[in-house]
Design a protein around this nucleic acid. Sequence first.
DNA 1: ATGTCAAATAATATCGATATTTTGGAGTTG
DNA 2: CAACTCCAAAATATCGATATTATTTGACAT
Lengths: 221, 221
Amino acid sequence: MNMVPSTQGKEASTTRECYLKLRQLILAGDLPPGKKLKIEELRALLKTGASPVREALSLLTSDMLVERIDQRGFRAAPVSKANFQEILTLRCSLEDMALRASIANGDTAWEERVVLSHHRMSRTERNNTELFEEVHKMFHMALLSNADMPMLLRYCDQLYDLNIRYRYLAADGPRYGERSVAAEHEEIFDATLRRDADAASELLISHYRRTGEYFISQMEG
Amino acid sequence: MNMVPSTQGKEASTTRECYLKLRQLILAGDLPPGKKLKIEELRALLKTGASPVREALSLLTSDMLVERIDQRGFRAAPVSKANFQEILTLRCSLEDMALRASIANGDTAWEERVVLSHHRMSRTERNNTELFEEVHKMFHMALLSNADMPMLLRYCDQLYDLNIRYRYLAADGPRYGERSVAAEHEEIFDATLRRDADAASELLISHYRRTGEYFISQMEG
DNA sequence: ATGTCAAATAATATCGATATTTTGGAGTTG
DNA sequence: CAACTCCAAAATATCGATATTATTTGACAT
């Protein structure tokens, strides 16, 4: 009888919705690092049952955004200088691998994805944090998307999100040096389209390191 | 009043038990790749409720041993030549990083862990597959254990298990070339204790590649 | 025969309630 | 006054049942 599709298009499961919402809350710092995540609270917040919440938290555990202690519940993953450092190191190594593989497999469809995502990013205002972070991630993942290594891409995606979380947390503090981020993106973009893997990778990694070292200097200064 | 502890020692949660059992079943190939994993069946097999089973399957999803399709249940992760290849590539890269970091941080306690696990492995018969795989993994993880990079170690651990699964599956086929596996372990061991990172890493990686390429040649031959 | 549709069947996802375990505090003792 | 035990409150983990959603079956029309 229900001829008008209630939510038109994709009917996600309750669990997935919980997962996405909780993920966003943690990434944006609304559920701060180390905070105890009580089922009952979240159940009330998301207006749903306990099962989907539990399962969503389970999934977030594998993204390393939530810690679980057997019989003692869940809590938002803590942050630390060492953890940030490790994320940075792993990203440099894994994205280097992925970008090289992506370029090596380079085809037209991929090139178009890169161009499109780059264009969208350039057209998005940086003030609109939420939206900018989204297109920014799209651009970076598009660069890697042709690597033909699904597990590697999954790791890169995870690490990207873990890193973004630190960015959100730091955003409360002093505005981070506007630097020449846009110019750096431009250089990476150009080198990639030139299929110059060495240059592209070098630029990408130093892009990360520069941002990373700035944060590290702030974290316990 | 219960003065005699029922299971003496560690009381794990039902979920964890399910997780460990299912994991072993999948690794050993008792739940073959691609097989539909129906909650009801597993519930009966493990003699427990549906909730722990669901949660355990959720956890296995993050280990990439189980695939989940929203609203359509779980299935054991499929296998493929490409997937094996990717696992091999990632292991070579990540274990290289971990081993170098581990050696760089090298201290006495770590050295003793390595020596101990090596000794245990050398004292274990290869025929006792189950047990040998356990001590073998212990040895390899001990080598990396001093890297002081928890996320990296987690990735290595995951990838190790994914690889072992292919070994179990291939074990049904022709016995894999006894080769000089023991000798190779010896060389890796020696180079590591010498703190010769370049040599140790080189030996470790070629150890993996050799085994890997042997399997690949068999997979679709 | 073959393809389509609807009812029946089976499996998953979710809920509400119960059982277990942990946590916090009051009261007692050395 | 510190440390320890025991009890009450709270939170987690698990169960059994129901509601949703996918899949199969079989009748019917082409």
